[in-house]
Write a protein that binds this DNA or RNA. Structure first.
Lengths: 198, 198
DNA sequence: ATAGTTACCGACCGAGTCGTCGGTTTAAGT
DNA sequence: ACTTAAACCGACGACTCGGTCGGTAACTAT
């Protein structure tokens, strides 16, 4: 049991830094000083290994970093702002960012592995559903303008988040985070209660 | 000459659909019915091949689809809206989207190949510079509110674009494009002249 | 004691990878 | 007709990859 978890944790770490196709099973094993036999005792294949990681580690971490923080009955705009701020700050500090992982893996597997894409899309849609739900609750609590299209806002927020992570990977992450958050806050003023939107 | 260009065009096509690390030189050669000899006569290595493609094809296409359309003295907001609309529409129709390519490659090479990352970042920063310039010109032409932070808007727009492309790759691209563009237009109302922003 | 199960080892296989190299064709120059 | 060089061929080497398999040590049940 502990072995499986060690393998998964290290696997996620390497897949995160080098990508799935660019990380070999031997790479993972070498870092753990373990053998091929141990690996194939616990997992059917490299793909199975990855899917286990997605379900056990990625899904839970996306939940705890991107979904849980925006639950509750407070103003969803404030919650989402705080959530993005936190997660981007940890990204600046080179900590593992599970939302970014999701976005990277979506790019890497898109059109290349249907099975894995399905699992990733499941996580994506859970995030989406929860965002929409949080926004709708915000509407009924009079935090959001009642003309707001919650699905559209959710799509827009997910886009913006994925995009800024790609961009931050390129150069000057700190400056880009700052600029991005500034504009996001501007955007949020639009959908706040008391503003009229279409 | 013609041979090199055929190779590069096919190379871009395959790297786009399968990724760089997941496409072998033999894959490209097989589709062209050409030999290893021909390949290594024209290019030093697979990496050299890719860099040539980036400089010759990707850079030019990014220019013609994302930069040229927003040049000129008209309202940059209108230009950018139209530009994004067009390029996302072609993405919906499964045509090759060079902005998306840029974003995919940024993910794929991030932390894995410094040399290639440098070339990609060059293209990225050309796009950024031109966006900022177009926005600044819009400010002096009174299309944009004069309090707008052009760098921040550019960062935000690039983020949003990259993100929505990642998201559209997942599922229901058409619906997501529609929702995204709707919110983008809302955002643009904020930075138009006559609105006050911070 | 013995038999069975769990967890693990690591040599090995075949397929595929990038890149090399000796050789061939084609076309132009003299 | 002869030389030369550009363009191209494809077998091959060196290596990496995911995955297999026969073996083994430790523990448990009987």
């Amino acid at each position: 049991m502990a072995t499986m978890q060690r393998m998964q944790a290290k696997g996620l770490e390497l897949f995160y830094s080098k990508g799935y196709y660019n990380t070999s099973v031997d790479d993972v094993l070498k870092e753990l000083s373990m053998s091929k036999g141990a690996f194939y005792y616990h997992f059917d294949s490299k793909e199975d290994f990855f899917i286990q990681i997605v379900q056990n580690l990625l899904a839970r971490k996306v939940y705890s970093t991107l979904i849980e923080p925006i639950e509750g009955h407070e103003n969803p705009i404030w919650n989402i702002t705080k959530c993005f701020e936190d997660v981007l700050e940890s990204a600046v500090n080179n900590e593992m960012d599970f939302g970014c992982l999701l976005s990277n893996f979506l790019s890497e597997f898109n059109g290349r592995n249907e099975t894995i894409m399905k699992h990733l899309n499941d996580i994506l849609s859970i995030w989406e559903v929860n965002l929409v739900y949080a926004l709708q609750k915000g509407k009924s609590n009079d935090h959001l303008d009642r003309h707001v299209d919650c699905e559209a806002v959710a799509t827009y927020l997910m886009s913006a988040y994925f995009g800024v992570r790609t961009l931050m990977a390129g150069a000057s992450p700190s400056a880009r985070k700052y600029r991005f958050m500034g504009q996001l806050k501007q955007y949020f003023r639009l959908i706040e209660a008391k503003n009229v939107t279409v």
